[in-house]
Write a protein that binds this DNA or RNA. Structure first.
Length: 743
DNA sequence: GGTTGGAAACTTTTT
DNA sequence: GTTTCCAACC
């Protein structure tokens, strides 16, 4: 028996169809990764050289998973198959050939933060009123143009007499000029410049066309025009292009994804073979039917209906609550009961929401319930201030032309270099046609800089030392030097606040990532490390092995699956979002939200719970929301709706309020009564109350094990100071931290 | 040049 | 409710 016998007929057909264009319409949970990996294995079995295969995904996580599975199937030679994301593929190509476009191959990659800094400069230079033209709006317009491969010149032409558009085109042109000056590319440039390279240099294109004779693209519905062009160019010679996607899971239109890429694939490649994978191996039929019904409300999609022989399962549950607190409590309570009944582990549960802001309440309840959790998204690790500062040092060492990086750190930690000095340096640099850092090196010659020069000197000396050191030192050694020589670490230790401790922890984490890179990378180098770091998304850090409840946005959840899924905040105005309801083209926008809902539902394997709150705090104001229209689109036969009739509901709510007041009163009395006793026999009460004392070893859910240093009595609670083995000294409230004594 | 406090903006989603 | 920005002060 060969391994292909485990595939269903459609999957098998997709695997065996290797020549010519192929579109695989793969519904959620239909085993597309399996098809892709087997397809790679089959190609190699048929005699294709591993280095002639390119598989492109969107996230590093997806790439890593595919790589792992391919390795298992193929074995020898599998490392010469390119399995990588759009962005890293492009970086790899550009690092080799971007000098053809007038950039240096050691270019920096700018993230959103860096882009903002550049845009600020641009607006200052062009005297743009940022009250009228918001930086965010300008960057958005530029990004959108790049997704569509529109150059500044083209934008200017397209603008015609539209003065507003003309202005934006001007900003775009200057922004590109700044990036070039800094020898930097932003995210969108990575794709666009690669296309430009291919168009301008036929020899380079030909090299890669020969190299990648078989190309596969995952999550094809999320590709934008630039990515489509890139893939088309690469595949133009051999035409062995296999794309896998699901138009119903297209949720990145706001980021420029062009759904037409998948809907029109057959028009662009008339000889394309189309295979539909409609058997779902993931969910119960109740969950799947609910998903089918919801997505059926969309127009303009390729018709398909997923089916499964997994059995009916339990109905989808819907619960509406008085407020977001009760909603969070219910979800967490539900998870706790699964754990207690030993039906499931923490990692079997995912809480999915529309906006990152919704995570906080769940986080609080989970801490309170002592449940380990992991939040994906929000602020990217590499976007944190201290991390960005340190990376800016490394970038300055790596790419001397990266002005954004230099400006970021020239006065961090404080060296007494202020705005006046900086603008003098800037003027000098422009006047002498040199880079900003170059000007700093010549600080003593800059007129009117006065004492400033003596402050700049130690900084440039450090950078020069690091540059020399870079030749032979590991990246971790460079970072260590930076931390020591600049006093960055010392400053944070001296500060001694909770915040500075958190920053120090993050720095330790960065250090361990650097060390990991030093040891495990094939050819470790400073540029290599910075590149890797620039292209990671938060989702890439989700490890299957660790046992956590996972919290994330519906967007981040695409491609994942969990036995128990909670979709929370199912309210009109939140999901679908208010923005989509009041948009110029609500139909289209709401269809995108509906696809997002479809993605969410189809993440669930065993049980799906939908929740909503009648009132919730949004931006400090109470909002009253109706139940999401998407919930109403699920027929009753698949839904267990335990929302009572209004009369009953009001009555229960009233009872609940009365109960809550009673509870509050009891609590107040208890604390009043407890107080005097505590103050009389402090030690005794503490021992019985906290069951640990000074000197005891305790365990905390997040910080691990540690020793109790001090217990102080606060107004409402005990404040415990603990020296944790790994996390350092922390002050915690006893009732919140739920410390456990270790015997 | 650095610190501080109050006002304003923000929140839809991110490689 | 939180973060970011800017002006007035030190």
């Amino acid at each position: 028996m060969s391994s292909y016998d485990l595939l269903n007929p459609e999957q098998k057909e997709a695997v065996l169809h290797t020549e010519g264009p192929l579109l695989i319409l793969a519904g959620a949970g239909s085993g597309k990764t399996r098809v892709l990996t087997h397809r790679v294995a089959y190609l190699i079995e048929q005699g294709t050289a591993p280095w002639n295969i390119l598989a492109i995904t969107f996230t590093n996580k997806a790439a890593g998973e595919m790589r792992e599975r391919v390795d298992k199937l193929v074995g020898l030679g599998s490392d010469s198959i390119w399995v990588s994301t759009f962005h890293s593929t492009c970086v790899r190509i550009l690092r080799r050939y971007i000098d053809r476009l007038g950039f240096d191959t050691s270019f920096s990659i700018y993230d959103t933060d860096d882009q903002k800094s550049v845009m600020k400069e641009v607006c200052k230079k062009l005297q743009i009123d940022t009250k009228v033209y918001r930086e965010r709006m300008l960057l958005g317009a530029i990004s959108h143009a790049k997704d569509e491969l529109i150059s500044p010149e083209q934008m200017r032409l397209d603008a015609g007499a539209d003065w507003n558009q003309q202005k934006i085109a001007g900003v775009y042109a200057e922004y590109q000029a700044q990036l070039r000056k800094n020898n930097a590319l932003d995210f969108d440039d990575l794709i666009m410049k690669t296309v430009e390279l291919f168009r301008n240099c036929p020899d380079v294109l030909d090299y890669y066309q020969e190299r990648f004779r078989y190309i596969m693209v995952d999550e094809y519905q999320d590709t934008n025009t630039a990515q489509f062009q890139l893939v088309s160019l690469l595949a133009a010679k051999y035409r062995n292009l296999c794309v896998v996607g699901d138009d119903d899971q297209s949720i990145y239109r706001f980021r420029g994804a062009n759904i037409m890429n998948i809907l029109n694939f057959e028009q662009v490649f008339p000889d394309a073979k189309v295979i539909k994978l409609e058997q779902n191996y993931r969910s119960t039929s109740n969950i799947l039917n609910a998903a089918n019904e919801v997505i059926h409300h969309n127009q303009g999609r390729k018709d398909k209906r997923l089916w499964t022989d997994n059995g009916t399962g339990v109905p989808v549950r819907f619960r509406q609550f008085q407020n977001a607190f009760e909603e969070a409590e219910h979800v967490v309570g539900n998870i706790v009961s699964h754990i207690q009944k030993e039906e499931a582990e923490y990692k079997d549960h995912a809480i999915l929401y529309r906006t990152n802001a919704q995570s906080r309440l769940f986080e609080e309840k989970l801490i309170y319930a002592n449940i380990p959790y992991k939040i994906i998204g929000g602020v990217n690790f590499y976007a944190r201030k201290e991390i960005k500062d340190l990376l800016a040092y490394l970038k300055t060492v790596d790419n001397g032309r990266d002005e954004v990086a230099v400006r970021r750190i020239i006065n961090v930690p404080k060296r007494g270099i202020g705005a006046t000095t900086l603008s003098r340096v800037g003027e000098f640099a422009v006047a002498n046609d040199m880079g900003f850092y170059e000007a700093l090196l010549n600080a003593e010659e800059i007129p009117g800089i006065g004492r400033g020069a003596s402050k700049v000197l130690p900084f440039t000396a450090l950078i020069q030392t690091l540059r020399a050191k870079q030749e032979y030192a590991k990246v971790s050694e460079l970072l260590e030097t930076i931390l020591e020589e600049t006093g960055y670490r010392r400053e944070l230790i001296l500060e001694g606040t909770d915040e500075s401790e958190a920053r120090l922890e993050n720095i330790d984490e960065l250090m361990s990532k650097v060390k990991d890179y030093d040891e495990n990378a094939e050819n470790p180098s400073l540029s290599g490390f910075l590149e890797e770091v620039a292209l990671v998304a938060d989702i890439d850090n989700l490890e299957e092995e660790s046992n956590h409840v996972v919290l994330m946005t519906l967007h981040s959840a695409k491609g994942l699956e969990f036995p128990y899924v909670y979709m929370v905040g199912m309210e009109d105005g939140l999901f679908p979002s208010y923005m989509s309801i009041v948009a110029d083209n609500p139909q289209e926008e709401i269809e995108e939200e509906r696809r997002l809902c479809y993605v969410g539902i189809t993440r669930a394997k065993k049980e799906l719970t939908l929740t909503a709150a009648r009132q919730r705090m949004v931006r400090g104001e109470i909002q009253y929301n109706m139940v999401s229209r998407f919930v109403k689109e699920i027929p009753d036969e698949y839904l267990e709706n335990k929302t009572e009739n209004p009369g009953q509901r009001a009555k229960e709510a009233k009872e609940q309020r009365i109960n809550q007041r009673k509870q509050a009163m009891l609590e107040a009395r208890r604390s009043l009564r407890a107080k005097p006793i505590q103050s009389k026999m402090v030690a005794a009460t503490k021992a019985s109350h906290l069951d640990y004392g000074v000197g005891d070893r305790v365990k905390h859910i997040r910080f691990g094990e540690g020793t109790v240093l001090e217990i102080t009595e606060g107004a409402k609670d005990y404040e415990v100071r603990v020296n944790f083995d790994t996390a350092g000294v922390k002050k915690l409230f006893a009732s919140f931290a739920k410390l456990q004594k270790i015997y």
